[in-house]
Design a binder for these strands. Sequence first.
DNA 1: AATCCACAGGAAGTGCTGGGCG
DNA 2: CGCCCAGCACTTCCTGTGGATT
Length: 396
Amino acid sequence: MASVEEIFERYLASRIFKDREKLLPDYVPENLPHRDEQIRRLATVLAPALLGSRPSNVFIYGLTGTGKTAVTKYVLRKLKEKAKARVEYVYINCRQNNTSYRVLAELAKSLGVKVPFTGLALGEVMKRVLRGLERRRRILIVVLDEVDNLVKRNGDDVLYFLSRINEQLENSRVSLIGITNDLKFMEFLDARVKSSLGEEELVFPPYNAIQLEDILRKRAAEAFNEGVLEEGVIKRVAAIAARQNGDCRLALDILLKAADIADREGADKVTLGHVERARHEIEKNLTVDVIKTMPLHVKLTLAAIYLLTRDSVKTITTGLIYNKYKELVSKVGIEPVTQRRISDIINELDMLGLINARVVSMGRYGRTKVISLSASASSVKAGLSSDLIMKTILEG
DNA sequence: AATCCACAGGAAGTGCTGGGCG
DNA sequence: CGCCCAGCACTTCCTGTGGATT
């Protein structure tokens, strides 16, 4: 075992990194290659704010890791530099703040209005937000990132409120930027919200392998010392990410992880082998982490699916899962939930990407869902095993 | 052509938590 | 203090349905 001193020494002596931060997900670079078009369009839409008039609301679509957030933050930063005090923006991530209340509370906080993190009626928070806005006399641009998360769970109350908020304001104006990676998202919205929110729309296409390679090369030049990347590493990472819908964030993740592994080993080059291991580790960590934090009955349901898969059952249906689940539940001496609930849990697991569920009609033999495990069985097992109750079930 | 299975999934409600407010 | 509020995990009750079999 290395002593603390040794660990730190080795870190300082790192051959690999020049500036590791440049690979972290929240770093917004000075240059965003292959997004010139989107930057120009967003800037054009937001420009009126400089002269004190309210920019149109914008809706931004694009899959994960296509630069939506980076471009938005980049343009807003530039806008604020030019506009000085008259324009402000708030960035709210609706995945972390995934309830109406939390989004409004975030908004209030950015206005310097105090709200408790629970307890108030929604209408009361809205009032406070309004008051805060009036006091500030600004153009406020509200960015709602991953806004589909909010609407799917809570409806579009908050969006409705925000899209009409200007009617109640004298001294301030609000513009909205909604960001989503769900291309069918608009269908969920109330017609009134839809028309007001969709004043401008911006689409971010996925990066292709060549573009990813270009981006990675530029970023690598900032982050790594010269010559530490083995031939073909960047090409490989770009190819992997290109297959995953051109997800640039994933590409950067893998590159960082590969470099970390190499660094930890004291290697002086990042090799293709490191990339391979990084990819595996990221995949595994992702599933293990979501599983760890799941509520008990969700874990039990997943365990049931896992066991059925392990016993190589050909077509796994909702009914089979429910039976297996009840079996598991009785083993640990807990009361089962209803099949209706399990049906919802199966959908939740599907949305998390751990399983694949599709409705299928088997004619005379009913209409049900056919389910298969889509995460690797070993990661599922690893994730479940972190729970002691689950561990005994899987071994028993 | 009608039937009927094995569920899907909507609507409404319950009980609990963790926190207001007056 | 009593009452209200939102969110969550869940229940109860329900209507709907694709298509192989009768």
